[in-house]
Amino acid sequence: MVDAETTFLKLELYPTWEHIDDVRTFVQAFCLRGVPQRGKLPLTPGRAEAVSMTVHELLQNAVQNSCDGRSTVTLSVNRVTDEVRVVVENRAPRANLERLMALRRVLDQHEDDEAIFLELMRGTAGKPGSGLGLGRIRYEGKMRLHIELIDDLVRVSARGAARGD
């Protein structure tokens, strides 16, 4: 059986904070450029912007929480479902994983992306960190999130439509 999902981009990097916006800009340009013979890129401009925002927010989390500075970013498109998937992986210390688990519980409680983002907005003022990134990916990027913790490996997958606004 042929895999319906094609990986178009895989980056392994040790990014500084300043690199993150370079990666965002690159990913947006990459998503807008077609790949001959492969068919499922380019994305529509709105989705390319959503995907690049997703990469930016996830990579910021990875850089802030990584224990070895290394992150990987993978971008795939499923030609059957016409969905794009972003996966960011990094290794993180235990304390950071517990914060992520707490955030995952909040996200899992809500179906409504706008409601969850508003709840996160109401809770963020005056606290360290914003805690808004994952909520923004859901609300603004219209992406579904899946967070896996395998020992100290954090794998965050964001999946959403490849077409549309």
């Binding site: 930016h56 910021q60 907005m121 003022a125 005056g126 914003s130 808004l132 990134g133 923004r136």
Partner: peptide, 16 residues
């Protein structure tokens, strides 16, 4: 061009 979520938080704090 772009605003990260931490900067967006600054707008929330202005409103607060």
């Amino acid at each position: 061009v772009y605003m990260n979520s931490a900067s967006f938080k600054s707008l929330i704090e202005w409103i607060c």
